[in-house]
Design a protein around this nucleic acid. Structure first.
Lengths: 194, 194, 194, 194
DNA sequence: CATGAATGAGGATTCATTCAT
DNA sequence: GATGAATGAATCCTCATTCAT
């Protein structure tokens, strides 16, 4: 058997792509820069990804998957809804803050035509658990009735906005403040009542 | 180089850039495609814009300026704060819905490294009136105290999210529903109380 | 007005392509070698020929056209058929002998998939006069009846074979001998009788 | 490197090369396509043929050898010269018609710089029997005196031309007609007399 | 020996920008 | 000022060949 394809190498390429995209912009990063940063030959990149577009899409999906994993890890199954939402919120915000490169790349790819609608859809899949939570909250009247995708998109947009401000802030206290303020806006915004 | 003569030509190039960027992606649009779409020679583009980066930045600023103008037109000086916010909200949302190409391009440029921080800052300028409104609302306790830029960013992010859903919706009623729901989430989220 | 496209430059590229194709083989000649030999920038080649395939096809057509012109120049309108055929034969053979590069390239391109059927068909067009002659000869019984294209193809194949031997031969006398022998074989082969 | 074990594999590669060359053009066929078509690994090809050039030359020789075998099989030792020539002619023509891929590839390789002069010479060797026949015919005055290689080349060129027309023709009768007409032209062309 | 991943030079284009007309 | 031909660096990808498994 010949050398097997190396998962490590594949990941190295993906990581390198992420790093290069973050520093030079997703476009304007030549594949040669990616392979160099990954420590592989230029041609090797193409044994792992048929072409640049495929690489970009794979990267997008991987980023989304990772984000979903992080958000849903340590899921507080027994907690009340607000706590659950807060759990997601914090994870989301801090993932972005702790991984600014990944967040930046994801932001760029999200609006890029380079990422296929299929990939965008696939990126949504891992967020299913969220929908279950939202459905319950709406059913029992805790949250105002509205389309689930809309609710999810609002959460995402608000958390991302929050991220930016948290990231800009140095003090631990200030960061927590933004995170709290953002969530509070979100939560008050969606709960039923008054 | 003397000041180019035709303001029309300059605008034609900017419009063409917008259209091309929207359909082919902001990057991956060659200047030749822009000049062709604008009906000018390839070289002519460079008498109006020193290079591609300048063109991109100019386009971004123009888009931002136009948006600000639209948002603040017919300003209801005498109305109450919620109405004023709603005014901004509706204008914002419907501008994006009515100008999907411009919105798409703005979204791409916003996260692009091609647009300088200076341009991004300049893009903020026209939103001053907004800050005045927010400051007042916070001072008199109508809105919870928080940094103005954060509040503005939240408004923007939520309105943009709303846009997407409005744009996807066919029926006039459904569209109004999303617009309303989005604003309600925003408003409940920021007002003080409870 | 900008610089006009230069017919000279176009021809320089075509000539360079011919020379390079002849020495390195039609395939395995990079476009960069052609542009260098033509004394133009690599990109310039592509303002005259959309891509390599177009260039190859244009070259083929030009070669064919040139050959036709040479063959039919000084046409002995008043001469008898054999003389006319001999006129064509000699012109054909000596064009190939005098332009070995062009002949070699034409030979390679003729069997190449790179040259479209359309180009091949276009290459036939200039040989119309030949068909008129053949038709007459067949009608008046001088030549055995047979499809015109078949007759033309035989002439071509036999003349080309003759070329090779003429080209290999140094002495003027030997060359004339091959040319004569080849024609005699052709002529005896097609005339009616016995 | 030891002598590779499987003659089958070697032939599979040669056959695959032939098929690929025929459909994609001799050049522009990567070795990877050949190995894939042959059902062997990319690297395996190189244990059977040191490099692509060697493979191409081997293929050429094999084709030539096969053709010679076919042409000379069932040799009518006792027949008269014309019958013998006709035997060769028919075999040649129908081999080409029945093996259009092989014929196409041979045609391409014949004019290719990729095939060495040595290979081209080697390709001639099997046709020795032909030379014996020709020598005899010339000696006893049946055929006009001329260099043997020239005569052989003429035969080849004319038969190949005939092939093309036979191949284009559907009806059995039409095909036989071309074959006959071609031979008649050849035979009348070379016999002595008048 | 078979396999197919790894390599990196090479190749056809593209494109921002310049400059002759 | 307008035009578009000219430029050549840069880019994505291919492919013959090598070599680790």
């Amino acid at each position: 058997m010949a050398r097997p394809r190396s998962e490590d190498k594949r990941n190295a390429i993906l990581d390198a792509a992420n790093a290069e995209f973050a520093s030079r912009g997703a476009w304007s990063t030549p594949t040669s820069a990616i392979s160099r940063a990954a420590g592989v030959a230029e041609g090797t990149l193409f044994t792992y990804f048929a072409n640049k577009e495929v690489l970009v899409n794979e990267l997008y999906r991987q980023l989304k998957t990772e984000l979903a994993e992080v958000m849903l890890a340590d899921w507080p199954e027994e907690a009340d809804p607000k706590t659950k939402y807060r759990h997601i919120w914090d994870r989301y915000v801090y993932w972005g803050v702790d991984n600014p490169e990944k967040f930046k790349v994801m932001s760029q790819l999200k609006v890029s035509d380079q990422v296929s609608d299929e990939s965008k859809a696939a990126g949504m899949a891992p967020f299913l658990r969220l929908e279950v939570l939202a459905t319950e909250c709406i059913r029992n009247g805790l949250i105002r009735d509205q389309p689930l995708p809309f609710l999810g998109a609002m959460l995402g947009a608000m958390a991302e906005t929050t991220m930016v401000f948290v990231a800009q802030t140095k003090s631990r206290k200030g960061r927590a403040g933004y995170c709290e303020a953002g969530f509070e806006t979100f939560w008050r915004g969606i709960v039923a009542g008054a």
